[in-house]
């Protein structure tokens, strides 16, 4: 038996909007730790890892570990039927082939339940080691989204180069080229507006902008984004989900042939 009650139901709605275009079907894993997901896009270039910790739920009951295969587009359709202020409860029976999403309006005058069919998904789980990254950039998530969107109008790939001087985003296309440099800036009124660059050594990696733009669909989840890079490793683009966990996107770099 599984029963997870999330007071801030809008968080789950935002999580689905952030991942449903990248991944079609995925297994949600439920354990004593929390509600989590790891899935790759169909071409195995990008990976998304989600964790919503048990402590972040108002009520969290998970009698035994359960993996529930869901079509994310269908799940998104159901969650769109929940109001932004609704409380969302996820319910499932051990060994059942459905999951129920229950939506309660804030003043309890409307209660809906939507039952969705589960599916068997043969998904591959990758082991991602804890890594000390050579460059870690924390910046306002809206600024990062803006840069990715702007550059994708010029080119298909972005070179992200981080050094002590700052982080440079560069692209080239048929019509020309573009560079955006962000310098460390901690003299801001609100800490979430800061750009903080931690560098062990300079890093420069090339990525497909299409994926970066897809990751920025998680922007409504967090005011800040953290981009962690090491030479010759996938980048990690992380959005923290307040008091609950995170959504991390990993993207394999483009390599010289």
């Amino acid at each position: 038996m599984l029963e997870l009650r999330l007071l801030q139901g809008s968080l789950l709605k935002k999580v689905l909007e952030a991942i449903k275009d990248l991944v079609t079907d995925a297994n949600f894993d439920c354990s004593a730790t929390g509600f989590s997901l790891q899935a790759m896009d169909s071409s195995h270039v990008a990976l998304v890892a989600l964790l919503l910790r048990a402590e972040g739920f108002e009520h969290y009951r998970c009698d035994r570990n359960l993996s529930m295969g869901m079509n994310l587009n269908n799940m998104s359709k159901m969650l769109k039927c929940a109001g932004n202020d609704d409380i969302i409860t996820i319910k499932a029976d051990d060994g059942g082939d459905t999951v129920t999403f229950m939506f309660e309006s804030p003043n309890q005058d409307k209660i809906s339940d939507f039952e969705m069919k589960l599916m068997d998904i043969d998904s591959e789980h990758l082991g991602i080691p804890e890594t000390e990254y050579e460059a870690i950039i924390r910046m306002p998530s809206q600024e990062f989204a803006r840069i990715c969107r702007d550059l994708s109008t010029i080119g298909d790939t972005v070179v992200i180069s981080a050094s002590k001087e700052g982080v440079k985003f560069s692209t080239k296309g048929d019509i020309g080229s573009a560079n955006v440099v962000c310098r460390q800036n901690t003299s801001v009124d609100k800490p979430e507006d800061a750009t903080v660059i931690e560098i062990q050594q300079p890093v420069s990696l090339t990525f497909a902008l299409r994926y970066m733009n897809s990751f920025t669909k998680a922007t409504p989840l967090s005011n800040t984004v953290t981009v962690s890079m090491s030479n010759e490793l996938p980048v990690v683009v992380e959005y923290k989900i307040a008091e609950m966990g995170y959504i991390r996107f990993y993207l394999a770099p483009k390599i010289e042939e």
Partner: peptide, 14 residues
Amino acid sequence: HSAQASMKSFFKSK
């Protein structure tokens, strides 16, 4: 010319 690397060339299956 650059080629797109796969996630599986960096991380092993569990």
